[in-house]
Design a protein around this nucleic acid. Sequence first.
DNA 1: CGGCGCCCTGACAGATCCGTGACGCACTGA
DNA 2: TCAGTGCGTCACGGATCTGTCAGGGCGCCG
Lengths: 227, 227
Amino acid sequence: MTRVLVVDDEPQIVRALVINLKARKYEVDAAADGRSALDLAASRHPDVVVLDLGLPDMDGVEVIRGLRGWTRVPILVLSARHSSDEKVQALDAGADDYVTKPFGMDELLARLRAAVRRAEPVGGGEDDVLVETEEFTVDLAAKKVNRAGRDVRLTPTEWHLLEVLVRNTGRLVSQKQLLQEVWGPSYGTETNYLRVYMAQLRRKLEADPSHPKHFVTEPGMGYRFEK
Amino acid sequence: MTRVLVVDDEPQIVRALVINLKARKYEVDAAADGRSALDLAASRHPDVVVLDLGLPDMDGVEVIRGLRGWTRVPILVLSARHSSDEKVQALDAGADDYVTKPFGMDELLARLRAAVRRAEPVGGGEDDVLVETEEFTVDLAAKKVNRAGRDVRLTPTEWHLLEVLVRNTGRLVSQKQLLQEVWGPSYGTETNYLRVYMAQLRRKLEADPSHPKHFVTEPGMGYRFEK
DNA sequence: CGGCGCCCTGACAGATCCGTGACGCACTGA
DNA sequence: TCAGTGCGTCACGGATCTGTCAGGGCGCCG
């Protein structure tokens, strides 16, 4: 299911959007200011963000920059300001689209679909979805891990960590990058989180957790997933 | 350079666009109807298409479908029709953005930049940068060194040193430069660090560490990496 | 309200890495 | 021949990093 983050300080707008989106089977989170928008984006990892520029606590463009610092999630800007300058500023800061209020719901939804569509991974490359090792199989699309015929239960955080590593199979992923992708952009030094969750992943997936074959530690640098 | 395909049957619009785009260092092709637009797209492989929906020979939405049959190139639709229905149709057919005439040139260019930007490859050119010698292979993106089929373990400092040398393959890198890049700007005279770590690199990578072929010392000056 | 799962946190032993000093060797110029 | 200089090598103590465990807080659901 596609997850949408709606950011607007006008309750009636939020309500209208939420109702329309949920009716179309989107999963919706909502925030009324920039700070909570950035927090929610970090914790919930939406597939697309609908962002009103006129927020009470910070400039909308700053919110865009805050998001673009760590994610390429599509950002659809909603604004009452028609000036060409505002549009250019928002788009150049990293927004994907700019819709002026009042807006037609049909058009907004179509633009939302377009934004989500083009963010989808290239083609029908189903090879990328299934990653297999001798001991277990990771299905990135179904969000499932299978080991010795049975599904392995992973907590959300465990899965998130696994996903980042698997999407970079063979490549070294730095501790900072892992922390920021899983826990959010304001993290970067809490390496004990990584130690704990890497241990849990290894316990659940490695044949010999104390001598990991697939989840390799590169001391001082990060971790690496190997097939 | 970014290549733009402009499709419109009104010569003055085409002219205005071409002038503005060329002034901003875009490479521009132009077509006045759907048929030649599709041909040009196939032969020239533009990085983005600006498409007027009102073409003499075929429906604009058909042009979008014709493009989407084989390419994901960003399509920015230009149209005089304001109806919500038209927009939804074009966007759902595969357009990335929809701008109504008359349009502001600044806004159009900003939307164009946004479309091009998000079409860029994910990691900013994460193509694995491979440097090969007869004895070992360095993968700068994955932070991996392979020798005789086995991965070589390098410590962070060793890797950092290797990275600087490899990025300057064939060039002499002064001791001061190496020290500053690896240990920080306040270093510059601690040449013993270099001696120690160069020795470790040679021990791990050279066939005959006491007669290095790839990590060459230039007495009194610095070191050089040769393939 | 009680149990459960999940997340965060702190502590600690062991492993790993880094900086440092000492020494021998090769080369150079007097 | 003999100092002087720069380089390669080695060994070692302290600092840092990692794996592991246990415990507490929080939200969710019966």
